[in-house]
Design a protein around this nucleic acid. Structure first.
Lengths: 235, 235
DNA sequence: CGCCAGCACTTGTATATACAAGTTTAATGT
DNA sequence: ACATTAAACTTGTATATACAAGTGCTGGCG
């Protein structure tokens, strides 16, 4: 089987939504209708709908039907995911633009964040991640050389920093700070932002069992990104 | 049916993990084994395992089996806190300004978000939370009357919406969407924002066991707020 | 000893079926 | 005209079954 049937149905639905054939809040075909259309059993169509509901693309309501959720690109939870996977999962084309790869001396702020001393050598990578050739994330990352000695020798066109780091030092924990910011001119140019467009900025520190692995500033255009997630809370 | 069988199996598995009967990375019973144990079909046992896998409690591997994932991710990050507690915890003075309390008809978007039908009556509250008399959050909240019939009759000067809702319908889950936005003029005035200041906007949907309780838009001036958290991730 | 084929066991996909339960609409009766 | 009932349609749960596909072990063969 080349590609699973329920996947085909998911992608079909996703395309209809993307092309606005099925606008937000509109009703999508019922399980039975999809089953007939795709010549499969209701349970297979159901699986496609259920999974799209899990990822908040659709909303379901017993007795009434299934509807297109309010959307925009969303990354599920604050799980640490691979941005390339995430983009490909949406059926979009992923590409990366490498701006800078170098060793540099840690300034006071970076040193403290990484648990090092000012002046220590750190690795620095600056990348732009693109979804369908449109920039969706500017990533500035400082890496602790003690944790990932060969960081800079990787091929960043094939592997994302996330993949490189997980391979070298399995992540156990992460710390996030999220803010809304107005980008400086340099970032406006790099991300091809409209004038006056704010950015969602995530500062992320990742830990392995042995200490701080890396510190990243992830800057997203607000128009092309939002962060979403669902999780339990203790009352 | 009081409680679905696949839910019972999920809860059973969850308890085993919580009590460390099944430690991290240990193998959990196979689909067939669980089916036999719970006297159900394999597909029902499978559903329990699959859903726990979706929420990163378990990890599955074709051919090898199902295993307890490393550590609990989630929670600590975006815990739902009471904003008044949070402010007082910082040793600051908390106050609230009530802008609007009313019943209104749900439009299509709100209705779907709350799991209702357009035109249904919903409760709406609009508040500004102040820290040392400076606005830190504008809260627009839609409440499902079926869940909290007496929502509007509360004294919002004493209790925050969060407190009111938790009392009426214990929250079990929440869904968040986070974006950076540029505020419209009305919000600039209400939050006393500097010109060109972006906002961090959190859309939060809270659930109790019986369904959607409320939908809130929380708008924070970027200069006076940032979101932070630390939590484990599964590699 | 080393290699490999086969087997047992696991998860993954797909189907057909049955009934439960919530919603909407249409028909019916007063 | 209005309220109630019934039917039709939706999603939700559960089962039985079949085969595909990945993993690991074991026994036999060279």
């Amino acid at each position: 089987m080349a590609i699973a049937k329920f996947e085909q149905i998911k992608q079909f639905i996703y395309r209809q939504i993307e092309m606005s054939v099925w606008p937000e809040n509109s009703k999508v075909p019922s399980e039975n209708a999809l089953a007939q259309q795709f010549n499969c059993s209701r349970m297979t169509a159901r699986r496609a709908l259920t999974e799209l509901c899990d990822t908040a693309v659709l909303v379901r309501s017993q007795g009434r039907g299934t509807f297109v959720a309010t959307l925009k690109s969303q990354s599920s939870a604050l799980e640490i995911k691979n941005i390339s996977d995430e983009i490909r999962q949406r059926g979009h084309q992923y590409s990366v633009k490498i701006l800078l790869l170098e060793q540099r001396e840690a300034d006071q702020e970076v040193a403290i964040t990484l648990g090092l001393t000012a002046g220590d050598t750190v690795y620095f990578s600056s990348l732009i991640h693109l979804e369908n050739k449109l920039p969706v994330q500017l990533e500035h990352r400082y890496v602790n050389p003690a944790m990932v000695p060969n960081y800079l020798t990787n091929d960043f066109n094939c592997l994302t920093p996330h993949e490189i780091l997980s391979k070298a030092a399995p992540l156990t924990e992460a710390e996030h700070i999220i803010e809304a910011t107005m980008p400086v001119q340099e970032i406006i140019n790099q991300l091809q932002l409209a004038p006056n467009e704010p950015c969602l900025e995530i500062k992320r520190r990742t830990f392995s069992s042995k200490g701080v692995v890396s510190f990243a500033r992830l800057i997203h255009p607000s128009s092309r990104f939002r962060l979403g997630g669902r999780f339990n809370v203790s009352t």
